[in-house]
Structure formats: structure tokens, C-alpha cells
Design a binder for these strands. Sequence first.
DNA 1: GTCTATACGCTGATAGAC
DNA 2: GTCTATCAGCGTATAGAC
Lengths: 190, 190
Amino acid sequence: MSEEASNTKLKILELGDDFLRSRGFNSFSFKDISDELGLKKAAVHYHYPTKEDLGNEIINKAKERLKSFIASVDGTEKNEWQKLSDFLEFYAEYLQEEHICLIGSVGAEFYTLPDTMQENAKQFIASAVGWLTDLLELGKNKGIFQFNGEPDARALMILSNMSGGLLLARMFGDDQFSKIINGVKQSLMN
Amino acid sequence: MSEEASNTKLKILELGDDFLRSRGFNSFSFKDISDELGLKKAAVHYHYPTKEDLGNEIINKAKERLKSFIASVDGTEKNEWQKLSDFLEFYAEYLQEEHICLIGSVGAEFYTLPDTMQENAKQFIASAVGWLTDLLELGKNKGIFQFNGEPDARALMILSNMSGGLLLARMFGDDQFSKIINGVKQSLMN
DNA sequence: GTCTATACGCTGATAGAC
DNA sequence: GTCTATCAGCGTATAGAC
């Protein structure tokens, strides 16, 4: 039935997302996906004709995840400090599945990816930078954050801490990522 | 003659290093290398029997580069601030060749790599963390750096800034990396 | 929606001639 | 040291049956 069909499509997408962020785009294949789901490669191609299609849907899904996060946090009474803390936790959760974020997975192979994926990923990450920049600026104006320099430079620093931190955690353990999160928070207090 | 032979071997190594840090380990092939050098795949296999061999030599070369950097800086009158500044510049130079560092390139595909490469990369990056930690500790004790928290947490933060910053620079331009470098310096002054 | 069958180039790797 | 030849397997992708 059509419900199961769309269930397959969703499973493919989720598995693709898993593979992308655990191995990299060029290190998984449609066969990996079909094997894991107990079907044939052709079935995967039915749902996502090309790997580029799948890749873009994975990025689109990440955009939605970010949108959901923002909605879940901006529509509340939380102050800027709590929102930032939630944002950092959003990244920390990746560790549970041994994932890195799209900055790392897409960035490392950036020049090998189809143009549409490069553009799509840029948009996604730019919106994260934008939201974080606004948060930092507002929080600084309110006196909740203390830091020198421009909010957008700080946003880039924090995102590099998150993306780079997830990479380092793979080699040196999750506790190293915790140190980075604590360091980021500390850097906004003093 | 044997000089040209070892020249080929060196060219393969340098090209492999270039490919690894611009595309990723699973996104270049022996054919890419042989094509670029105007020879056949078999010739590449003669110098590096397996891709794993080549990969490990690339990492070994990175170890030497780091060693050279440290030697060039620790054997001088430079103070800790200047050494740190040189270290950050060491990363900034990657931008000229559109490279990322090994934390990014190896980290993103970490679980797909042979065990020997994973171990080798860990060693390399651990030694960078170690040197930077010592530098930060010494500089803090001398009053050259001002920061809260442990030196090793700071070292991880700075390395995540560098590795993540190189990834972000691919998407948003080299000037974004400059902002991060300035931010890192600022974070050690206030 | 999923299957079989097929296409064809690329992959890492080896054997043996020059 | 480099070559030709060859290998088995995998890569993305398509055509057409069920």
C-alpha cells in the first residue's frame, strides 16, 4: 500500500542522512542502502532517481530540522542564554549516533559534490549562521552575553567549534566535545 | 635514473596529499594520480602498493610538517604570543590551495578508513593538541595569555576553530576564516 | 513499488614483459 | 620504474517485466 511505499522513501532518506554524516557522501552507495533495507538498488532509484536527488533531500531535511529547532525555541519564554545552550545541545546529540554535522561532512568533500548540493548546503549553513548571529547580538544588547568583537564573527567561531569539535570527538572521545561546549559558554560570560 | 624515480614517488605523495585535503580519501583514485602525472596506475602501485600505504605516508608527511613547524618556532626567541600567531597562520596558508586540515579530511571519513590510518591520524592530531596545550599553559603562566579554564580545553577549542573554520571558508570565503583567527586572538587577550 | 537484467566505466590490485 | 594486460567487484543509472 502507499503508506508502506512512503515509509520506504522515508527510511531511505533517514539512512542516507545517517550514512552521509557518519561516512561522507562519496563513501556510501545505493547498494549500502538497499542492502540495509532488504531491497534492491533499483527500488532506491525509484524513490530517488539520482544520488544527487537523495543528497539534496538530505540537506532539505536538515533545513527542516533547523527550522523546527528554531521554532521550538523562539516561540518560548526562554532567554538568549537558554537558547544558546539548547543550540549547543542540538549538536551534542549528534555524538550519540557518531554523526558529524553537515558543515563537516559536506565541507570535507565540498568540491566533489554536484553544484546543486553545494548551493543547497551553503543556504542551510548560512541560515544557521544568521540565526546564531541574531541571537548573539540580541543577547549581548540585553547584557546576557559578554564578548568582544562582532556577533557574526562570534557565530562563526561557535559553529567552527561545533563542527570541528564533532570531528575531534571521533578521535579523542565525547568528553572532549563537552570541554568545548563548556569553553564556548565560558567565553560568553567573562 | 634513481633520482627521477624518487622524484616520481615524491610527486605521488604530494599529489595524494593535495587530493586528500581537497577532496577526501575516498574521493580520489590511483588513476587520478597517474593521469595527472602522465603515467599508468601500475606505476603508482609500484611506489605505494596499496592506497592505505599512500594514506599513511601522507599522514606521516603531515607529522613531519608539524615537527618542522614546531622546530622552526621553538628554537627561537619568539614569545608565546608570536608562536600562537604563527600556528594560526600555519592553518591560514591552507586556504591558498583550497585545502582543509587533516582533522577535517580524515575526521569526516574516519570510520571508513583502515585502522592503521585512524591510529596514525590520531597520533598526529594528538601531538598538535599537546604542543598547543603546553604553549597555552606556559603563556598563561607568563601572563601573555589571559583565559579562563584549562589549557587543554582551550587547545581543543582553537583546533576546532581552525578545522571548522577551514570548512566554513569553503562555503563563505576566506575572509570568514580571518574573522575566526582574529576572534581566537581576541579571546586570549581580554 | 519492487524486481531482474543489463550497461559501462571506475576501483584497487596483481602478473609479467620491457 | 614503467608498461600492458587482466581481474573481480562495485559505482550510478536505466529498461522493462511483474
